[in-house]
Design a protein around this nucleic acid. Sequence first.
DNA 1: ATATATTTTTAGTCTTGTCTAAATATTAAT
DNA 2: ATTAATATTTAGACAAGACTAAAAATATAT
Lengths: 217, 217
Amino acid sequence: MTTLSEENYLKAIYHLGKQDGEAVSTNAIAEQIDAKASSVTDMIKKLADKELANYIKYQGVSLTEEGRLTAKAVIRKHRLWETFLVEKLNFSWHEVHEIAEQLEHIKSEKLIDKLDDFLGNPTHDPHGDPIPDKYGNYTKIKSKSILDIKPGNQGILTSVKDSSKAFLKYLNKNKLALGDTIKVIDFEPFDESFTIETKSKTMTISKNVAENLYLSI
Amino acid sequence: MTTLSEENYLKAIYHLGKQDGEAVSTNAIAEQIDAKASSVTDMIKKLADKELANYIKYQGVSLTEEGRLTAKAVIRKHRLWETFLVEKLNFSWHEVHEIAEQLEHIKSEKLIDKLDDFLGNPTHDPHGDPIPDKYGNYTKIKSKSILDIKPGNQGILTSVKDSSKAFLKYLNKNKLALGDTIKVIDFEPFDESFTIETKSKTMTISKNVAENLYLSI
DNA sequence: ATATATTTTTAGTCTTGTCTAAATATTAAT
DNA sequence: ATTAATATTTAGACAAGACTAAAAATATAT
Ligand SMILES: [Mn+2]
Ligand SMILES: [Mn+2]
Ligand SMILES: [Mn+2]
Ligand SMILES: [Mn+2]
């Protein structure tokens, strides 16, 4: 059985290792978790002892198959709860992450499977991120950042890379939501900004915004 | 902010003190929480430091107004989550307590208020226990144990005193559920058993069962 | 009233998860 | 190839929450 803290580390390593087994540095984890590097070293050792992680001193850490499965189980819970909060309790997408950070650690297989059914077995959470099924499998919608889309092309906003409260509130303010059709009108090389067009209006977005919006073509 | 452990102690003291401010013994709490008396003494001191409890050495502990409010907030969460699990996720009433023991510690006022609305502001949980509102107020349905009901009288099963899994499963097996009309047919002084009649059948129940079934007349 | 039993508290230890400061390895720069 | 900078690990400490064993207080029984 994993502790809350262990689960948070597994999640961090999973995300930083880009889902496959890439080795992750102590400092990267420390920043993600908001802890000191020394604390990370301690925890990595514990995870390695439990055979959830592969660890060689000074060479970073990666997840074992079991570690990866556990990480995905936590992510599944996180995203199902976020979906519940938005779909059933009418939270806005920028409010749910912190609450899901708590709910993701509730231990009950049956609960999460029943929740999954109750929600209609959703495949993606309110931020467009894929929800692993109970075996850890998921398929990510093929999409690319506006940064990589040439003017003249359009697509549907399917996910946001940055799910921070600040960014989501920016999108709310500017009436941009998942599912919207967005057409890339122009690219300005000077500041790398983009002009985009939605059903309701035309607007300019910074590079910073553009790189966090993912469209499926 | 209270910790998970503090919340469990507050709840225990609240229940043992019979809701009003009655002083509770160290040993009673130890048994309820399943911890050693020495651990209880330690925690009581912490609660007293935080002004959640009144504590005089060797004379037991009682809750302050703030402690009582916090306890009721946790109980509110517990019972709302239990209601959610039964009403929305189709759990049986004997499965929900353990999961609610975890969920009751999730911290978000907004979450619990939205959950309350989503459930239609229920006044009682799946075991017939009252759900405090957000100010800690609740009204208990007036009811009495079958032990105190004379043969010939009947009432509606509104709550169970013992919410243990074993007892609830016994009731399931014998097709007794909240809302059922139960008539007391006979009392046998020898073993203090009762014969009761429901819509579907007549059966005999032990004293132990009778004292845990509460009917509203 | 005194002795005995029970309850409660204290003292000291342990585990988990964190931290700071110091030591060691690795990487980058001259 | 050294030296300097950066990253990582170790050593030692601390807080929370639990435990065991022993001491002290209270309650019970003669
Ligand atoms: Mn978390
Ligand atoms: Mn999400
Ligand atoms: Mn609890
Ligand atoms: Mn209940």
